[in-house]
Design a protein around this nucleic acid. Sequence first.
DNA 1: TTAACTGTATTATTACTTCTAGTACAGTAG
DNA 2: CTACTGTACTAGAAGTAATAATACAGTTAA
Lengths: 125, 125
Amino acid sequence: MFELDVRSRKPIYEQLVEKLKQLIINDVLKEDEKLPSVRELAQQLTINPNTIQKAYRELESQGYIYSLKGKGSFVHPSGKVDNEEELKKVREELKKLFAEAIYLGMTSEEIAALLREVEGGQQDD
Amino acid sequence: MFELDVRSRKPIYEQLVEKLKQLIINDVLKEDEKLPSVRELAQQLTINPNTIQKAYRELESQGYIYSLKGKGSFVHPSGKVDNEEELKKVREELKKLFAEAIYLGMTSEEIAALLREVEGGQQDD
DNA sequence: TTAACTGTATTATTACTTCTAGTACAGTAG
DNA sequence: CTACTGTACTAGAAGTAATAATACAGTTAA
């Protein structure tokens, strides 16, 4: 499914959150698709189930997945995500990153081009 | 000068790096301005000098400040920053954040507006 | 109902990172 | 010289991440 860098200074569960988020955002994992179970993914990646659970819990609190006891964890449909708190974080993050990019010498046109590039690759409903 | 959240789950030195970066980017700290010395800032914030040094080392490696033994640490002039590695990281970060913002429901126009906002006035945290 | 899944929670222990503390060395400036 | 500056290192305390084992509750199919 994907790989993790155990030697990284970044916590495994954070790497997991990022990777899964990317898969969801880029529509590799479709709406309402079932994710591997906590224990199954733990076995696949040879890491502890608790670490997977921590990542899933984080993804759920951010609105990317939903979990049903006894059934499994599923991708939250994009259109139905309503997480004002996450949106606020992303806006703040964007502002900081824009300032940083400009400071490092990027022009707004370069940044805008990057946005169009991402926008194009996005096949949203 | 600023405040830190010791109770945060984010390491103190990382918070320091972020705050100082913001001050530099938003021109609160001017080009070639002298930063507080490692020991002085440590005393002001009542944290260990080693923690300050770690933050300064990080800022230096990212191209935001330069340090002269016996003299002090100073803000690296914006125009002279040439850190392709940092720029690459920022571009990747931007792409991820764009995809995330769009997934959470932001339109490209909203994102572009945010960029214009940052581009125009210098805003703070 | 039972068996085998699922998510979730708890506790204990280990491993790792962060932070602190103390010390030291080298360069600068008055 | 004295008193600043950055930088480096070791040691240990404190906090976080990861593992391990166990348990409970809900779902599903035989």
